[in-house]
Design a protein around this nucleic acid. Sequence first.
DNA 1: AATGTAAATGCAACTAAGTTGCATTTACAA
DNA 2: TTGTAAATGCAACTTAGTTGCATTTACATT
Lengths: 129, 129
Amino acid sequence: MEDLLQKQGLKRTKLRMALLGYLFNSKHAQSYLDIKNALGEQVDKSTLYRNLGAFEEAGLIHRINDQSGMAKYAFGALHDHGNAHAHFVCESCETVYCIENANSSKINVPEGFKTKNVQTIIKGTCAAC
Amino acid sequence: MEDLLQKQGLKRTKLRMALLGYLFNSKHAQSYLDIKNALGEQVDKSTLYRNLGAFEEAGLIHRINDQSGMAKYAFGALHDHGNAHAHFVCESCETVYCIENANSSKINVPEGFKTKNVQTIIKGTCAAC
DNA sequence: AATGTAAATGCAACTAAGTTGCATTTACAA
DNA sequence: TTGTAAATGCAACTTAGTTGCATTTACATT
Ligand SMILES: [Mn+2]
Ligand SMILES: [Mn+2]
Ligand SMILES: [Zn+2]
Ligand SMILES: [Zn+2]
């Protein structure tokens, strides 16, 4: 867990350990506010955002834009490794779930277009709602 | 063209005709800034945003969130009519294309989840780049 | 253990997309 | 022509995220 930080050349600060642990244990994607509430009000905004950015760049987490206007973050970097997964956004409770193996099929793009990565947002109602 | 406005109970103002015409003739999705530059600096921000919202609600245009932090708009309302199409975002020139028939067929969601609508963002390099 | 240094933090100020309240103007129906 | 609801223009606001900079801290080296 914490060695993941070292392995990426990131110093093991208090906040980073807490942040990485929190996202690791989260069942679904968390927004900046979710994280701040979980880790404590005193967490600095800049530091938190910078660490989210650093983690993302290091491939420890991935960012999901569910068009709510607020990015959400989840452990794991499946997106950038070709193994893109889908995200389910519950329209009722706003929860964002990572969905593995959602789409198994072919995407057709016009001549000359080169697909690097496909991001799927599924909107609907989750099992809890 | 202009009768589309009346048909939706929207008054045919100068800006609305220009805006709808501009989006109709655009080959790809346009941001607020693109539109403002095209229609003239003097266009009011509130009015433009309110009209984009009104058009969207009326089903004349659709909004695309390509993760750039700035929404983009395109003519047509395919998204809300089950006939969702995909969007191709060129990582080099930032252009957003509407892609018909990209059709990723089957989407698998876990037990208890109900899919209402699927949005696909394809990232890659476009034919012009 | 003491120390040097680059990286990380904390704070405040900033940026930029989008929204809102309100007074004025305009499309259009009567 | 006129009444009125809808649209506009402007300024002030909101909010997610960023940036510059001085201070602190992780951690490698001695
Ligand atoms: Mn995910
Ligand atoms: Mn489209
Ligand atoms: Zn739900
Ligand atoms: Zn391109």
